[in-house]
Amino acid sequence: MLVETVFRSEDVPAADRFECWRELMSRSYAPMELRSDHADDFRAHQRLIGLGAVSVWPGEFQPLVFRRTPKLIRQSDPEVYQLTLVLKGSGRLVLGRQEATCDAYEFHSNDSSRPSETWTGRERTGIVGVELPKAQLPLQRGRADQAIGRRMSAKEGVGALLAQFLTQVTSNTGQYAPDDAPRLGTVLTDLVAALFAHTLGTDTSLTPDTHRRTLPLLIQAFIQQRLHDPDLTPPSIAAAHHISLSYLHRLFQDEGATVASWIRRQRLERARHNLTDPALRTVPIRSIAARWGFTHPSDFSRAFRTAYGLSPRDYRHQATRSTA
């Protein structure tokens, strides 16, 4: 299990809750000023998870204002980038002359070396925060600074891949061993670098090692978002990522699969899930097959039987009986 520290406001007397929260934030992260209209009985729940040099902190709390002032920066600057995935609520960031809003399923970014002020919305806010040392980010010097403060979506592409990684790691830390922490931190750092590079409109800022490690993940995310497209083919995937077809096949050989078999497996898994969904019980099987890129029902039935040992009809019937 990964090592984590947990704060629950209900474990602290009401009058002391906000002060305890403030001390935790200033001790665990870049020192900051905090204020809240709910300070008399502040409600918050937060975990701090260490992944090597990277810290991840999922939390939920009442409306707040965070301030990082020039004075606090002079007193202490840990030289970190901060990235926050907003899961619930909204926020607004002022970073020098920049001002940006951030809604649910977007990232906002910050820099511990720059004065800033962040307001969360009027409702409880749910986030997953990330802090990583600037020196650890595998981007060309100065490029990461240009991405700070820009809006970054968590709904598609690299942002969705990073959001998926963060929610998966933080939802169940018990599935990982303590020795996994540095490796997970490396993956997280590479994905943050890839998101920054994507935000800047180019991946040429990435180091060769980071590009090589993240490219298979980015291609898999690209495929998963287009499984419904019957024209999704290895040549179209290679062209979309500006790589040769042979290099694409080589990447998937390292994953232990061919490109076509990996696409088919993902499509079959989505179709299998639909067949067991009570809400889709009346949807024709051929429609479910077409939804996931199978243009010929007979091909779908044959592939499904090979993968799961039953025809799609029998599989749905068995799942329906089990649910009943």
Rank of each mutant, 00 (worst) to 15 (best):
C102M: 11
T69M: 08
S153A: 05
L93P: 01
F7G: 03
M32A: 02
G91D: 04
T199H: 10
L64Y: 00
L217H: 04
R226N: 09
L24P: 00
A147I: 05
R47G: 02
Y247V: 10
Q168E: 08
G52S: 10
A144S: 04
S90N: 10
S76E: 06
Q164A: 15
S311I: 06
F107W: 08
L162N: 07
C102W: 01
P133Q: 09
V6F: 03
L137K: 07
T276E: 09
Q146H: 08
D209W: 05
V65N: 04
K155A: 13
R43Y: 00
V259N: 02
Y176E: 11
R35N: 09
T204C: 09
T199Y: 14
P58M: 01
A289I: 07
K134P: 00
R270V: 07
E79N: 14
P63F: 09
T199P: 06
N172T: 06
R321A: 14
T306L: 13
T173I: 12
R212S: 11
F61H: 08
L200K: 11
L200G: 09
I288M: 06
I219C: 03
T199V: 12
T323C: 12
G50P: 01
T5R: 15
F304A: 04
S322T: 15
R114F: 05
L161D: 09
L34Q: 02
L280K: 15
T233V: 03
R265Q: 07
T101G: 13
A239Y: 09
S153V: 06
A194V: 02
D229M: 05
V128F: 06
P115R: 11
T5K: 15
T323G: 14
L280S: 13
S112L: 00
H228K: 10
Q140I: 10
W262P: 01
D41A: 14
E19I: 12
D190P: 02
M1F: 15
T207Y: 05
I288W: 04
T258I: 01
P208I: 07
L166W: 03
F294D: 08
L251W: 04
R267W: 09
A53N: 10
R302A: 08
R286M: 09
A290C: 06
A307M: 03
Q146F: 06
A177L: 15
R122L: 12
A154M: 07
P70D: 06
L248E: 03
A15E: 15
A319W: 01
